[in-house]
Design a protein around this nucleic acid. Sequence first.
RNA 1: GGCCCGUUCGUCUAUCGGUUAGGACAAAUGGUUUUCAUCCAUUAAAGAGGGGUUCGACUCCCCUACGGGCUACCA
Length: 513
Amino acid sequence: MTQDRRVRVRFAPSPTGALHIGGVRTALYNYLFAKKHGGDFVLRIEDTDQTRFVPGAEEYIIESLKWLGIEPNEGVGFGEGPHAPYRQSDRKPMYRQFAEQLIAAGYAYYAFDTAEDLEAMRERLKASNVDAKYDGITRSAMKNSLTLPEDEVKRKLENGDPYVIRIKLPRKEEVKFHDEIRGWIIVNTSQMDDKVLFKSDGMPTYHLANVVDDWDMKTTHVIRGEEWLPSAPLHVLLYRYLGWEDVMPKFAHLPLLLKPDGTGKLSKRDGDRLGFPVFPLDWEDPKTGEKSSGYKQAGYLPEAVVNLLAFLGWNPGTHQELFSLEELIAAFTLERVGKHGAKFDQNKAKWYNQQYVRKVDNHLLAPSLKAALALNVPEATFSDEYIEKVCGIVKEKISFVKELWDYSNYFFIEPANYDEGVIKKRYNEKVPQLLSDLIEAFSALAEFSHSNTEAAYNAVLAKNEVASKDFLQLFRVCLSGVAGGPPIFEMVEIFGKDKTIQHLNKASASIKG
RNA sequence: GGCCCGUUCGUCUAUCGGUUAGGACAAAUGGUUUUCAUCCAUUAAAGAGGGGUUCGACUCCCCUACGGGCUACCA
């Protein structure tokens, strides 16, 4: 029956801070799955815990998805659709009826225990070495509508005494469900507890809200992180007790992203500790003021981030590693998602980015270089054409967009000093003459192409009886100040005649043995 | 502690009982580039351990070890 439904998946983060790349990957897999099947990708904001709400987090999530190009076609920030609203706090009124429906059907009950009551219960059970959980056994000793006289329950409710609604789990029953990635999973209810479904503040917990919303939004596949696997049986039971088992979504629990070094899952702290971003965009915590760097600002390209994230836990089964979003959509299947956690590899990430930086059109790279130029040389005026050419020649040498300036600044500013090692090694008494001859030869060129300048250079060297290799690197240093760089005559061509001669003049005056 | 999930080169992974266990990143070496980066070539590098099942196990089952997750009126 679920087979002929239109595929609908959702990404359902909580706005409790910046969206971490593990979450981004979950969003990506959902996106790929939806697109692959011509379905819908929904963004739902799960903000049932008002105490953990962080201002700006929701906007951050939306901006991140936009930057990466994995945009939901329905949901908060993306044009609300037929199932609006998509923010759980805005959906608040619809949850209570289902909690009450469960009570009426005998699948849930009111519980009036205070925090102290619960604490005492846990202490007691721990002391006797028993699992401290609110379950089929312990609930008989607690204050709830199963143990209290009916009239007292009624009175408490009418009094407005605080209460929660808990699911009433059967004592011993196997809950079996199929995970698209892990196969059949069986958990006995004797290992589970009577989870709170509805909180005393009038909000549902994740479990209830999640199930109600997925049902209401006609979700066909729940693709989420492995941390949800333990509560999946509870969700299965909720679908059953609510009478929605025939439209229950399929589950797929994704392996987690792990720390590159030690152990444990990748957390927000790891990024800046290890020197790589764990967030798509820069983020500053509004409460603590703590800053974390993002992929975008670190010089990553969104296509690279998508590609490398896709491969952390999934592979196409071929040797192809570079995939555009469209190719990922075509190739993606849940069957090829791995079962075990993946450590984030900074080197591989760098390599991916390098591949994409080289492929980017120069005019798309230019704005970044322009920004760096404006920052370093505010008074500079260079044409877009010139900046794009510079991007074209240096993009082969960098891994990150932000390295553009470091590798190309000499295209915009005269060398302030010259590589001493090269001068020491290559400077001799013939250099002044060479430079003056070169300036003269270059000045005479009508067309300042790399082939013409190279020919002129070779003629000058021959005339002075100097082997090319004995001077070429010093020539480079005269022009740029640094020992390394792109092919020299291509660099000269981009410089153009005026700048080349200007730099040679300056070098001629500044460089001495 | 309990429950659940997992375990192939340093890392990401291929392998769906029979392979010289393949690829990529990182590493090393050589070459190209008079430089750096690139690029090319080569090398080194793996089935956690123990039991089964089978003619034959990386692949299936069990145990152990290890790793991860969960164990809140958080998601």
